[in-house]
Amino acid sequence: MTKKILFILSEYGYWGEELLGPLVACDEWGYQSVFATPTGKRPRALPPSLDPGYVDPPLGRTVTAPEIAVAARRLDESVRLDHPVSLAEWLPDRPYQSDPEYLRALEAYHRELTKVDDDIAGYDALVIVGGSGPIVDLANNGRVHDLVLAFVRADKPIVAECYGVACLAFARDWDDRRSILAGKHVTGHPKEYDYKDGTGFLGTDFVIGPPPYPLEYVLRDATAPGGCFHGNVGRETSVLVDYPFVTARSTPDSFLAGQKLVQVLESGLRRYGW
């Protein structure tokens, strides 16, 4: 049976290579790929991610090879991303406690969540694509958290790249509020990779200095006790597998992350990179 992979993308800009890498691996293996965004709006690549001449300030060099820029632009302009699934239409939204019918609304919310467990039975893995956009509409998105938790309950692999890894740190059961990354080994955007200025988002003129939170610190806290954040600064790539999680640090790790997902699905890989 053909494997089916769910890709979650931000509506505020994804990094081209961070979609391309995992998607190429899935295409090569004949997997079916389904795309989703928070409200069903078509995702778009961040312009710098399609520019082979763009110099990443923290690294002091270009990060997108010319052939990758061409392939990422071709994908971004293709029809493949035209009609993404809307998470807002698919998953319920947890009610405020101030809702006058809070208990009934909460019961309805939990009833709908049981349907999500049934829905993901048809999927084999989840991929959360990185870039600056996830900071805005994925990291603290309750529907994304519920989807992540559903994949964890089903013991299915989850790939998260760059700022998309924050979704894993914040996905928690509301009863104990304990991160699902507790005790796990992960990688992600280290402090050294944070911009000092110019963190931008697609579809808005809002440009800030550094990102609103240092992802490394979030991940160090989320993986405790017993786990660890691995920045691997100074190494060309950083991808970790600590099943069910496959985490990728940044742009250069995208294709390796896709390869490791295939190995998880096809060969039973459960640990890599630490």
Rank of each mutant, 00 (worst) to 15 (best):
S33V: 12
P58N: 06
A45L: 03
G53N: 11
A72D: 00
V79A: 14
A105Y: 04
V85Y: 02
S49P: 07
P92D: 06
A72Q: 00
V63M: 13
R80I: 15
P57L: 08
K41H: 09
T39G: 09
A69T: 06
P48F: 00
T62K: 06
R73Y: 04
R61H: 11
A72S: 10
T64Q: 09
S49E: 06
G53K: 10
L103S: 10
A45R: 00
P38R: 03
Y31V: 04
G60H: 06
Y102W: 04
D82E: 14
E67D: 14
P100V: 06
T64S: 11
W90M: 15
L103I: 12
T62N: 04
P58V: 09
E67P: 10
P48G: 03
A88M: 12
I68R: 07
G30E: 01
L91M: 01
I68E: 08
A88P: 08
P38K: 02
Y96R: 13
A45M: 03
P58T: 05
P84L: 07
E101W: 10
W90E: 07
A105L: 01
L103P: 06
R42I: 15
S98C: 13
Q32P: 09
V55Q: 04
L59M: 11
V70P: 07
S78M: 04
A45P: 00
A65V: 11
P84I: 01
L75H: 00
P48L: 00
W90S: 11
Y54P: 05
P100G: 09
R61D: 08
E101D: 13
G30D: 00
S49M: 06
P100L: 03
S86Y: 00
P100K: 03
G40Y: 03
P58F: 02
R61P: 09
T64P: 02
P52A: 10
Y54I: 10
V55C: 07
P58S: 00
L50Y: 04
D51A: 04
L87G: 01
R74E: 15
G30N: 01
A88N: 08
F35D: 00
V85L: 14
G60Q: 07
A105T: 04
W29A: 14
R104P: 04
Y102C: 04
P92C: 08
T62Q: 11
W29I: 09
R44F: 14
T39P: 09
